[in-house]
């Protein structure tokens, strides 16, 4: 279980997050949705241990979070791939840092590249990749370290509609096959409803509403009317002041 209690984050004098409270069950998914500048990235950084909150606490599996945690993976808004490393070496980076033996690194990187369908890109450099391909490499790099908590910041905002749907499906498949808790930040309502078992609607620096999403994970859910009902519901909460 991930628990966030009375969380307050400041940037200088700006109150970026004010009294945030929520919890996420282990191995489920959660989408955080809200307008630009409301503090979604800040919340994700706090959960990753990249920034220190002024007050309040974050507990991950009962442990209070202090700084960066080995089993948390984060995918940043602009992917954060190293331009001087090939796809292969980018994906291996987390494992190299953890000083895994060579064979283990080789095995894991091969497997994760295959899972994401990007084996043929392994010798390319990030500049040679399309947005969707970079996205997949970033996901592969994070999955390679087998996180139990995966944080994703606006992962699909720059992709075209088809690629976006494709990668959203991919995320769902990966989540089904690998037990982990997934937290995803977005400002796209359909994305939140498609990928969030729980949906947190944010306003400026605070939470407006938390919804449970019963349509999550259903077969071909994008074609079902209840999917659109859910989207409308989320929209209603977003519009509320």
């Amino acid at each position: 279980m991930i628990e966030v209690k009375n969380l307050n984050v400041f940037y200088g004098r700006e109150h970026a997050l004010s009294n945030i409270n929520f919890s996420i069950d282990t191995n489920t998914t959660c989408a955080v949705i809200g307008p630009s500048g409301c503090g979604k990235t800040t919340l994700l950084y706090a959960m990753a241990g990249l920034i220190t909150p002024r007050s309040g606490e974050i507990r991950i599996h009962g442990q209070r979070l202090r700084g960066i945690r080995k089993d948390t993976g984060i995918i940043l808004q602009d992917y954060g791939l190293m331009p001087w490393k090939t796809v292969w070496h980018n994906v291996a980076l987390g494992l190299v840092i953890r000083k895994l033996p060579r064979d283990a690194i080789h095995g894991r990187v091969t497997a994760v590249l295959k899972e994401l369908g990007i084996q043929q890109l392994k010798d390319k450099y990030p500049v040679q990749l399309s947005g969707g391909q970079k996205q997949r490499v970033a996901i592969a790099r994070t999955l390679a370290v087998r996180p139990d908590l995966l944080l994703m910041d606006e992962p699909f905002s720059t992709l075209d509609a088809l690629t976006k749907e494709h990668i959203q499906n991919l995320i769902l498949t990966i989540h089904r096959h690998n037990p982990m808790t997934l937290v995803l930040v977005t400002h796209n309502i359909q994305e939140a409803v498609f990928l969030g078992r729980r949906i947190i609607v944010m306003g400026k620096a605070s939470i407006k509403h938390i919804l449970d999403n019963p349509t999550f994970g259903r077969e071909n859910v994008r074609d079902k009317p209840e999917f659109y009902d859910m989207c409308l519901k989320v929209r209603k909460y977003m519009g509320r002041v």
């Binding site: 960066i68 993976g73 984060i74 808004q77 602009d78 954060g80 953890r98």
Partner: peptide, 11 residues
Amino acid sequence: ELFLSARSLGM
């Protein structure tokens, strides 16, 4: 972002 990405990987 590159620094954050490096730190988040545990460097």
